[in-house]
Design a binder for these strands. Structure first.
Lengths: 219, 219, 219, 219
DNA sequence: TATGAATGAGGATTCATTCAT
DNA sequence: AATGAATGAATCCTCATTCAT
């Protein structure tokens, strides 16, 4: 894409070309269905070169996961301005997230569809990054709770569940936005903010939803 | 498991045994990594019989998707009592959803991890059911909006986006609940209600979140 | 060779055909240079069938080693008549050994050239059989010593060393006889008897060779 | 090992380093399993340099065979003092042989395990040296025969067979001595002298072993 | 209804070897 | 004198699928 196919490139450049091809192929075909042949051809090199540089299909896949996880994380972190209030930060983070995933659909597919679908050791690779995002969101929620209220009302596991729900909603919205013409990353981010912020705020203030006319909203 | 391996069973029974084995194998290994050999052995029959009844790996997978989608949908619909208020209906539906997926982890994996991971024609099979669930949730949100308020405050596309987000959050939570020991279906349902209902309510009342000190929450 | 190539043979028959082909190919090409393709073709079957029955190149090679070792050992044991004097028994055993190896050059090559050349676990397989032969020879030498003389003139370790030397000489002669046109099994056996028996007899009678004009023949 | 890896050495030195690495690798892995990559790395040079100096894997292997054959032959010849009686010369030669092979196990493996295992043209290379050893032993036996007796009683082919047997016994003893703690090269040489000399002497004197109570020891 | 026997096609991986510098 | 970059050609192995009974 960026670099011409021509021969004799330095190793670092070739490696990136190979990983570009691999991300695309893994993202579209899935880990098993992607063949090293196809990846090599798409990268414009011979198969042995892919093995020389990336060792095996497993390692290639892992390298892709790591690279995509890193760029996604960096994109989100770069989108946030630390000084702002929590909801603004979440809003900025979500926008960055949706924009990055919209611009890198194959990387997104590798991370959220393929890597989690095939067992260890790949799932763990993604977990690392997800945990960082969860930590980021957890930090925001905690900060917001301190801003708005006084006591730390939310147990850790609840926060983890909320992060899961938020990421899941984000994934679904990302897929929906990509498939539905005229829905922008910004709109998706706004929808998700609308959907989630009020609930988070209520929770942070110790006002959970509970069935009307019934005793418990929690087991 | 339920049926003995013994010979000469009626076709319908054998087919169910095969699909049980297939769901389990597809769910645990993934579509590509699952081998017809393993499925046949787990089903306690010979491979040619699997082909005789289910024709091909593709068709077998499709049959699994359809069966699992059908039972999931039926479980959710059976959990809802039409007369109740919207939030109670949603609560009941979510509980049914989370309980069913917790009891059928392999079916869940087939539907949400495997079928969507591998391209057409499988993704479409799941979409059909997903759309039915989205339609169901969309109906609930619309009904709740009419209950609570008088004018149609929410444009259709917003409702669709919210439903996508909610279903996505539910899917992510289901996966998380299945993988995380000690998280019950009811808890997952409560977490999701907490997370989502307040936001929905605000929206239905025409009070969307919007960036403080900025003009628009919607592009 | 013996069985027609025709289709649909019972498994046991096919397995023997495959092993015949494998012994021949391994014997002539060596373990690494032999390809499963060539073996399958020589056996008149497709490669997957070879794998279905024999699992892997390693296991196929091991199976060949075991089969050839077994038949060689049985041939030697069948050639010996227990009642005879020790030198006659040795003579008979050597003849049987040389005849069998002359009739099964590929099996011989598998056992003595290939299996020992490629590391574990193959070498161990051959060692087992070799040790049985060495034990057999060791027994003969001991018996002869008791026949000819009264006191136990030979320490155990000497006997062990002699047996090693004899078996090693036999192995080398077998290879040489197979490669050299016009050298018969009987001749090879006679050469080895000539070469070894006098020395053994001297030793058994307590008359070892020792450097003339020097004190010790043993370090 | 002896020479530092550093750059820019004269060709002759580099060649020896490469051949050291090659002998070690071929000896331990076998001809086919040894990779040019491993050899180059062990030699501390790049692969193209190996090709520049030694042209191909085949030629490299051949060069190794020649070098090792030469040093072995020289070691044996250097161990012998021409003036002594034949048995003392054989004794000295055997001792030199066992010491050299014990000190150069990889060279020994290349010559006796690998080169003979893989077909032409390698086997021929070894034959050349073996023939020289045979000639040497033949000379000794002939000299001994003249010392001890008057007429040359042994046909050439018998002598060749005896040399085979002797080398085979030597190989087996070398292996056994290496694996059995406390057995020295000198002891192995003594065992082999004990084993073989009396037989050789009898043969030289026209008194071959023959089955007692039977007419012929030779077909 | 049910299966033992069999295969065509393809996929991951390795290796000897060369080219351009 | 020396090497980083690159590949054609195998090789082991697996799998979905069919045939004959």
């Amino acid at each position: 894409m960026s670099a011409v196919k021509g021969k004799r490139m330095p190793r670092a450049v070739r490696e990136q070309q190979m990983m570009d091809a691999a991300v695309r192929t893994f993202g579209q075909r899935g880990y098993r269905a992607a063949s090293m042949d196809e990846i090599a051809e798409l990268a414009g090199v011979s198969k042995p070169l892919v093995y020389l540089y990336l060792n095996s299909k497993d390692e290639l896949f892992t390298a892709c996961i790591r690279r995509e996880a890193k760029t996604l994380l960096e994109a989100v972190q770069a989108g946030v301005e630390p000084g702002l209030p929590a909801d603004r930060q979440l809003w900025a983070g979500l926008r960055a997230f949706f924009m990055h995933t919209a611009e890198n659909p194959d990387g997104w597919a590798v991370l959220y569809r393929q890597a989690r679908t095939h067992g260890e050791p790949f799932a763990t690779e993604v977990s690392v990054m997800r945990d960082e995002i969860v930590a980021f969101v957890t930090g925001l929620i905690g900060a917001a709770a301190r801003e708005v209220h006084h006591d730390p009302a939310l147990p850790d596991r609840d926060v983890a569940g909320l992060a899961q729900a938020l990421v899941g909603a984000a994934e679904a919205l990302a897929g929906w936005a990509n498939e539905t013409p005229g829905v922008s990353a910004k709109e998706a981010a706004a929808t998700l903010m609308n959907f989630s912020w009020a609930g988070l705020e209520n929770l942070m203030n110790g006002r959970p939803w509970q069935p009307r006319g019934q005793s418990a909203g929690r087991g």
